[in-house]
C-alpha cells in the first residue's frame, strides 16, 4: 500500500512539474511575442549564448568528427567499404552528432548559467526589484533568453558544429587515412541532402528552446539561498539534457522514420 502511495505521489509531483513548466513556456512565448521588447538585453544574451559558446562547440565537434572518421574507417575496412567514409561522416555529423553534441554542450554552459544567474537574482531580491520598477521580469529576463537561444542555436552554433565536425573528419581522412581531398569533398557534398540539413536545424531550434526553458524555469523558481541556486543549476542542466535526448529521438522519427 505504501509502495503504491509513493508511486502516486511521484506521478502527481511529476505531472505538477510538467504542468508548471508548460505554463511557464506558454507565458515565456507570449511575452516574447508582445511588446515591450528589450533589444539591448536580447543582444547581450545572443553574444553570451552564441559567440561565447563557439570555442567549446567547435573544439568538441572537431575532435568528434575526427574520431568518427577513424571509427568508420576501421569498421568499413572489414567489408572493403572505406569509400563510404565521407558519406557516413557527413550524415552522422549533420543529422545526429552535430546538433546533439552542440545541444548537450550548450545545455551545460547556457542552461547552468541562466539558472545560476536568475536563481541568484531571485534570492537577492533583484527580481522583486524589477517588479517594483514597473518591469515585467518575464519580458525583461525570460523572453530575451528564450529568443536569443532560438536564434543562436540553429543559425550559428549548429551550423558551426556541423561544419567543423565534417571538417574534423575531412582533416583526419586526408592527412592520415590517405583520402584524396577533392574526392572526399565531392562525396560529402553529393550525398548530403536538404532534408539532412533541415533535420539538423530543426533539432537545433527544439534543443535551443528546451535549453532556455529549463535554465529560465529552474532559475526563476529558485528558493532558499546558495544551496537553492545550486539545486536549480543542477536541475536545469539535467532536465535540459534529458529533454534534448528525448526530443532528438522524436525529431529523428519525424524526419526519417519512413
Amino acid at each position: 500500500m505504501n509502495f503504491l502511495a509513493v508511486i502516486g505521489r511521484v506521478a502527481i509531483s511529476f505531472l505538477q512539474a510538467a504542468g508548471k513548466i508548460g505554463l511557464f513556456a506558454v507565458s515565456g512565448i507570449t511575452h516574447m511575442l508582445t511588446p515591450p521588447y528589450y533589444p539591448r538585453e536580447l543582444f547581450r544574451q545572443m553574444i553570451n549564448i552564441g559567440y561565447y559558446s563557439l570555442p567549446v562547440v567547435g573544439l568538441t565537434t572537431l575532435f568528434t568528427g575526427a574520431a568518427l572518421a577513424v571509427n568508420i574507417y576501421e569498421g568499413s575496412s572489414r567489408f572493403n567499404a572505406e569509400s563510404t567514409l565521407p558519406t557516413i561522416v557527413v550524415i552522422g555529423i549533420v543529422r545526429e552528432l552535430g546538433p546533439t553534441l552542440c545541444g548537450l554542450i550548450v545545455a551545460g554552459r547556457v542552461s547552468a548559467s541562466m539558472a545560476a544567474e536568475l536563481g541568484t537574482m531571485r534570492v537577492t531580491e533583484q527580481i522583486d526589484a524589477l517588479v517594483t520598477l514597473s518591469t515585467d521580469p518575464f519580458k525583461y529576463l525570460i523572453a530575451p533568453r528564450i529568443l536569443a537561444t532560438l536564434i543562436m542555436m540553429p543559425l550559428m552554433l549548429v551550423v558551426v558544429a556541423d561544419t567543423i565536425g565534417v571538417l574534423g573528419g575531412y582533416l583526419l581522412a586526408t592527412s592520415k587515412l590517405g583520402f584524396n581531398s577533392g574526392n572526399y569533398m565531392k562525396s560529402t557534398i553529393d550525398f548530403l541532402e536538404t532534408i539532412d540539413v533541415m533535420a539538423s536545424l530543426t533539432k537545433a531550434t527544439v534543443f535551443g528552446f528546451f535549453i532556455a526553458l529549463m535554465g529560465c524555469y529552474h532559475g526563476f523558481n529558485t528558493r532558499g539561498g546558495a544551496q537553492g541556486v545550486g539545486i536549480s543549476t543542477t536541475n536545469a542542466v539535467v532536465s535540459a539534457c534529458i529533454m534534448i535526448l528525448l526530443s532528438n529521438y522524436v525529431v529523428t522519427e519525424m524526419f526519417f522514420s519512413s
Binding site: E117, T124, E125, Q126, D128, A129, L130
Partner: peptide, 9 residues
C-alpha cells in the same frame, strides 16, 4: 531593499 538588490549585470 534590505540588501539593496542592485542589478549586478
Amino acid at each position: 531593499f534590505q540588501g539593496a538588490a542592485l542589478f549586478d549585470s
